[in-house]
């Protein structure tokens, strides 16, 4: 069949098409780019790295750039990308990481000064159980000759000390509005899309500098070749993220069952994790004009704890939604 004719998803989706492939193409995080480029000058001395910062600021992108530049053409073969929020237990460390780290020790005669030739990128490493993180300690050391680890996390405090101490830590800053807008404008120019400044502002307001989310909104809104505020608004409305806002609204309105149904859809159809739901639900609480958001946040924290320690996730989340409905928050707005 016409195998070559099939378009690649990574060519269709702008978020991949415009993902930088070299460190010097990364628009922000100048200090980090400089630091990494310096480290790359002596590849055999490259330390393990730990990238921390909020979502969509370029942590994974930089890790991939680094892999490309260090490993060259075969970077994909020699890079293991794992997302700890999908496989978070010790099994993942033992079966995937350990195996990947040990296979290559046999495959090549190691010279003392040879450069590392395998990279393991552990994304969302803060989602790993501490048991799994502990199991990594030895692997990191045993495979140090051949392998470099790049840990990526949102919250540095969730990474155990022994791993932190084995890595050079880079803290990523938020991407500013100017940087986001400039990048999005460039994309629009390339794609021949007309865009409204207000629409770009709207995107930034919504995503708070999350590049992945920004570019996805832009593309979904660009169907007509023209991106307006209204189209951005429409595009924002379809995401799983905005479902969370709807769920919280319904719950606050004491529409328990409607909010529960939407939640089940979010978890099952969109595949969003329970913990991610609560994480963004917490953001939503502070976006609303509540008299005492801290009270609500405290309740949420309690159920987040129970989610981690309870047997039935659905019972815990439903109980949380019912709590929101009882508080009568609507009549108590500021």
């Amino acid at each position: 069949m016409e195998k070559q004719q099939k378009p690649l998803v990574s060519d269709i989706m702008w978020v991949e098409k415009y993902r930088p492939t070299r460190l010097d193409q990364v628009i922000n995080q100048k200090e980090i780019v400089k630091g990494l480029e310096n480290l790359l000058k002596k590849p055999n001395e490259l330390p393990h790295l730990l990238f921390t910062g909020s979502a969509g600021v370029g942590k994974t992108t930089m890790a991939i750039c680094l892999a490309r530049q260090l490993l060259g053409e075969n970077w994909k073969r020699d890079t293991l990308e794992l997302n700890a929020s999908d496989e978070r237990g010790i099994k993942m460390v033992r079966e995937r990481v350990k195996e990947f780290a040990s296979i290559m020790k046999l495959s090549i005669n190691q010279q003392a000064d040879e450069r590392p030739f395998k990279i393991i990128i552990l994304d969302e490493a803060d989602e790993m159980t501490s048991e799994a993180q502990t199991a990594l300690r030895r692997i990191i050391e045993d495979s140090a000759k051949t392998t470099r680890f790049v840990f990526i996390c949102n919250y540095l405090s969730h990474i155990i000390e022994p791993i932190q101490s084995r890595c050079v830590i880079f803290r990523f800053s938020k991407v500013s509005e100017d940087e986001v807008v400039e990048y999005l404008k460039n994309i629009c120019k390339n794609e021949g899309v007309k865009v409204d400044d207000k629409a770009l502002h709207k995107i930034y307001e919504q995503t708070n500098g999350d590049m992945r989310h920004s570019i996805n909104i832009l593309q979904a809104a660009s169907a007509s070749g023209n991106v307006s505020v209204q189209q951005v608004q429409n595009a924002i409305g379809i995401s799983g993220r905005s479902k969370i806002s709807e769920i919280i609204d319904l719950a606050i309105d004491s529409k328990f069952n409607d909010s529960r149904l939407k939640l089940l859809e979010l978890l099952n159809v969109y595949g969003v994790s329970e913990t991610d739901f609560l994480r963004y639900a917490n953001e939503e609480i502070y976006k609303r004009d509540l008299e005492n958001p801290y009270e609500v946040s405290t309740i949420l924290a309690e159920y987040d704890y129970r989610l981690a320690n309870g047997a039935h996730p659905e019972i815990q989340l439903a109980a949380f939604l019912a709590q929101l409905g009882r508080l009568n928050l609507k009549s108590r707005k500021k």
Partner: peptide, 26 residues
């Protein structure tokens, strides 16, 4: 969802939050 998580170098949960519906729209 699993395929998109590989394509977008991110977790399946993040795909659900920030990618899946945009992808389907595109």
């Amino acid at each position: 969802r699993n395929a998109l998580s590989k394509q977008f170098h991110t977790s399946t949960s993040t795909v659900g939050l920030f990618c899946l519906s945009y992808f389907l729209q595109v």
